[in-house]
Every structure is written in structure tokens, then in C-alpha cells.
Amino acid sequence: MTPRRARGAGLGPDRTDEFLIGVLALQGGFEAHAGALEELGARTRIVRVPADLEHLDGLVIPGGESTTMTLGIERERLAEPLREFVRSGRPTLGTCAGLIMLDRGHLGVLDVSVRRNAFGRQVGSFEADLDFEGEPLHAVFIRAPWVEEHGEEVEVLAEVDGHPVAVRQDNVLAVAFHPELTGERRLHHWLLDYAGVAA
């Protein structure tokens, strides 16, 4: 996941606390994301209306119900401001429903088509050990989607049964699982690292 600085190279808690990361909080697992980012030393802001996006260094679109979130984005007129945010080059992390929000059929800022509830209903929700860019990563999938099809610019970082479940395109990292629920911090770290590069 480049660009990435070597761990600890100028990115201690004394640097990360300069970053302000927004977490979209219309509905879903936003608190766990905010907690994970604060654990890494970042400041966070709950995002519910367009004005909340001002002066952010990065953004998380969490898991939740994608229909509820889509309606919320419409109601709050957040679609265009969110697109502008992502296009500005600042790092954006989407998890589960967040991956769906970023896809071609929704905000259209990530060149992927995503299948909702691809692994089935809740009885099909699972935990699995992934090969994430050659490193092991334990992941929790909840009524999770997968990437059905993607453009050439999109890098696939992990798969389950041949289906991409983690992808990156420039400043957008999106996964079908929930790093915020397991203590997995590499993806949040990427967000802060990238914010450092973009700043």
C-alpha cells in the first residue's frame, strides 16, 4: 500500500495529532472507527452534514446499512461534497457499506462494481484469515459485499474465494470487512500515513 512511510519515520503520536479525520456518521459502525483513529493519535470529527467536511485531512466511510446510508446522503445533500472531498486527493477509507458508497453505482469515485450481501444473509457472516498484500490479516465479514468487477486503475489487495474484498485506487482504500471491530490498525495507519503525504 504505497505511498507509505517506514513505520515510525516521522509519524509518531506527535505528528498524527495534527491530523483531523472525519468519520461519516449517518448510521452504522462509526464509533469504532473514531476509536481506532484516536488510539493512533489522530483527532476525529463526526460528519453528518456538508459543513463537517471542511478542513479534514482524511475520511472514513464506515459499515452500516447501505440503503439507510444512501438515503441519508441524499437527505443531507452530501453526495457532491463527498465526491469533491475524494477528488481533492485526500485519503478515504471505506469499509463494508463504505465500499458500496464509493462504487460506480453510488458516489462513483472508485472504479468498481460491488455486489451487496454477496456472501448471503447473517448466517453466512464469517471470520477469515486473509492474505493481505502478502501479509496475514484476520478479518470479520458481516453480510458483506465483494467487488464484482473493477477498472485497470484498481489494485486488488486481498481476495476471498477469488472475489476481491480489498481494493485501492490512488487515495481510496476500500474493504468488504471490518478492521475497526478486530483491533486491526494497518488500514487506519495507511489513512494517517497518506494524510501525512498529502499534507
Binding site: Q27, G28, G29, F30, E65, A97, Q122, S125, I142, H178
Partner: peptide, 19 residues
């Protein structure tokens, strides 16, 4: 792959939060 774990069960409720 493990289904029906407590983490997966409690995790769905996490995703319903604020709803």
C-alpha cells in the same frame, strides 16, 4: 472460515447503530 462467532453476531448490531 468461521461462521456464527460471537464477534460476527455482535458485529451486526454494531452496524445497526444510530439506526
Amino acid at each position: 472460515m468461521e461462521t456464527g462467532t460471537f464477534r460476527v453476531k455482535a458485529g451486526l448490531a454494531e452496524m445497526l447503530k444510530g439506526g
